[in-house]
Design a protein around this nucleic acid. Structure first.
Lengths: 210, 210
DNA sequence: ACATAAACTTAGGCTGAGGCCAAAATTATG
DNA sequence: CATAATTTTGGCCTCAGCCTAAGTTTATGT
């Protein structure tokens, strides 16, 4: 049994209730037409409490953060010793496609519609993609013991991040177009192979183990 | 002489005055501490007039839009027939470095500081990078007569866009660090070569003219 | 030249996000 | 059981973004 006081239990409970009510309202009425006050009322807490748990309104809808932004960095950090980053990410992505993993873009059509319809959420998603790329760049810089102003880790992270961003967007686009998860998976599989094949000549040897 | 009515003249004048006053205030006090009402007062117009010309407050500080977002697409569209996109962009970027072109990240330290200090402006900059990438993707898709769901043009555009984004960020970072334009140009030249060399194995043959 | 139409500007008000604060309620700790 | 730490609360404030209705200026057709 995990050590956890009553206080922490209640916090989780409150946070969970707020997020659940928020998601419910957002899906029903659209992100922009639901106010923080509405969420607070539905969760039966004060407006300020909502803000305490979710500093920005967008976080109410995109409560992934750590899981999402650390995805690429974790995959690379945990890969087999000596394996190129590109190969590890390729494998991980294709696995995620098979799992219909939400982290690479699989989502309910309603959820996808909610996100796409809101400029604020789209902007937040852009920010998350960037954070994810930065985290990957950090791992690559560390691993290769690159000098602080060596542009290579950032460049490689940008290439790899770009691939994942484009594939994420394709998943969302197809979801909005009404395709089934299996159709989307098949298409993503093809696109991913195209993408990773494209980068292979440039990145297959990174990081250099020489 | 260009044909232009009195009305259009006045509009330009008003827009120019608003933008100038806004920039002056932003540089002096910081973006977030200047309100639209302040700008309106300084430009001696109504608050709503400011909003009419610049729907978003961020546009008051980043009034580049067309010039910036069309940069890559234009370079590729106007390159010599048969020249790879990568080669054209490489040449254009290195030229821009020599020119200390603001469009690739050269800016006054004060201006750079103003942008970086404001989350809203940083977010807007992300959005502009994305628009630029989308414009490039459109040109590439058109040129290669790619099928609507062919991921290749988007992937290539993402790679090329990523390079430009990383280099832009490096320019800003070095500006904030107090480096001189010449120092920055020298560093950017090296980084750009690294970046374009990195992509060469993957992209030198795109688009295929076969 | 004049009247009418079109376009732009204006003042004012409204909503909602985000930030702040002091007080009350709740939980933890000695 | 008392005291300290934390969370919640309600209320207040500023400002961006949007709207409306009216006023002003410029363009157009007769």
């Amino acid at each position: 049994m995990i050590r956890m006081g009553l206080r922490e239990m209640k916090k989780r409970q409150t946070r969970q209730t707020i997020a659940a009510q928020a998601t419910r309202l957002f899906l029903r009425h659209g992100f922009d037409r639901v106010t923080i006050a509405d969420v607070a009322a539905a969760a039966q807490v004060a407006k300020m409490t909502v803000t305490n748990y979710f500093p920005r309104k967008e976080d109410l809808a995109l409560d992934l953060h750590e899981e999402f932004t650390g995805l690429l960095a974790r995959t690379v950090a945990r890969r087999a010793p000596g394996e190129p980053a590109l190969a590890a990410l390729r494998r991980a992505f294709l696995d995620a496609v098979d799992r219909h993993d939400p982290a690479i873009g699989f989502a309910d059509p309603d959820f996808a519609r909610m996100i796409s319809a809101s400029p604020a959420l789209v902007a937040r998603l852009r920010e998350l993609h960037e954070e994810r790329e930065d985290a990957l760049a950090s791992v690559l810089a560390e691993e290769t013991a690159a000098a602080p102003d060596d542009p290579l880790p950032r460049l490689v992270a940008a290439q790899l991040g770009a691939v994942h961003r484009v594939l994420f967007q394709e998943a969302v686009r197809r979801t909005l177009a009404g395709e089934s998860p299996d159709e989307i998976a098949a298409a993503l599989n093809r696109s991913a192979r195209t993408a990773f094949d494209l980068l292979t000549p440039s990145l297959a040897g990174y990081p250099h183990t020489a």
